[in-house]
């Protein structure tokens, strides 16, 4: 449902959506608060080269996949450029989702009841998360999840919309896979776009999946690999984000 909302939001504003313009409007119209500050920090100009873009790789772990019912349990982030991922900038938040964790989700992200019970609610951290994202392009693997959960969280906390451009490693990978030659498409079995599967195609090491911070690093490295192999770092950022 939210994905549809976002699509509508993009379509309303035409193909060449002007994120710069959107940020300016938001910065002016929003009431004072963390969200206004986020938009005031701006977004890299449309013609910024990919190579020059400040980026933030981000990952969320959630109680489930439905953004309206489920909530965030942990967030990991790390800043990066096309050439470097900086460990020093890594951040990690575990939050109390305010509901029982399902057994199913525990087996995925391995955060237990006691881990999250002690943790503060998302409201305490959301401002820091916005600060980390401010002024940068967010890099995630599978944009829909992060987009929906962060939108939902902002709506709940501030009663306002939160939209931002994303470099989606999954979308990039799908495009790469589609552009492969027919022969390659026929003879290569591995066409999975799961984060780990994508990484293997680029010779990246296996990391333990479903830890928000590790997955943020995983996406960051994957983007570097995709850029090295398939993207043109001298092209404008706007050619690749969505």
């Amino acid at each position: 449902m939210l994905a549809k909302l976002y699509d509508n939001f993009r379509q309303d504003s035409n193909q060449a959506f002007d994120w710069h313009d959107y940020y300016l409007t938001q910065a002016q119209t929003l009431p004072e608060g963390p969200l206004k500050r986020f938009y005031q920090a701006g977004v890299p100009a449309l013609d910024t080269k990919l190579a020059d873009s400040p980026m933030l790789a981000l990952d969320l772990e959630t109680t489930g996949l439905r953004s309206q019912k489920d909530t965030i349990v942990s967030v990991g982030s790390v800043t990066m450029s096309t050439k470097r991922v900086k460990c020093a900038s890594a951040q990690y938040w575990v939050v109390n989702p305010g509901a029982r964790l399902s057994a199913e989700s525990i087996t995925i992200h391995e955060l237990t009841h006691s881990d999250v019970e002690q943790a503060p609610p998302l409201s305490r951290y959301f401002e820091s998360i916005l600060e980390a994202m401010a002024g940068k392009v967010v890099v995630v693997h599978c944009a829909a999840i992060e987009r929906q959960f962060l939108y939902q969280a902002a709506k709940k906390l501030y009663g306002q919309d939160l939209f931002f451009p994303i470099l989606d490693t999954l979308a990039i990978e799908q495009k790469v896979l589609k552009q492969r030659s027919l022969l390659k498409r026929i003879f290569t079995a591995n066409t999975s776009v799961r984060l780990d599967a994508c990484r293997q195609r680029y010779g990246l090491p296996r990391y333990k999946a479903h830890h928000a911070l590790t997955d943020a690093f995983s996406s960051a490295e994957l983007l570097q690999a995709q850029i090295a192999h398939h993207l043109d770092a001298d092209k404008p950022l706007a050619d690749y984000w969505s």
Binding site: K83, R84, V85, K86, C87, A88, A90, Y202, L204, F217, A220, E221, Q224, A225, A228, H229
Partner: peptide, 14 residues
Amino acid sequence: MVHEIEIQYVRNGE
């Protein structure tokens, strides 16, 4: 020390 590491991907041949 690990907290000050940077990570870099380099393609074959570079």
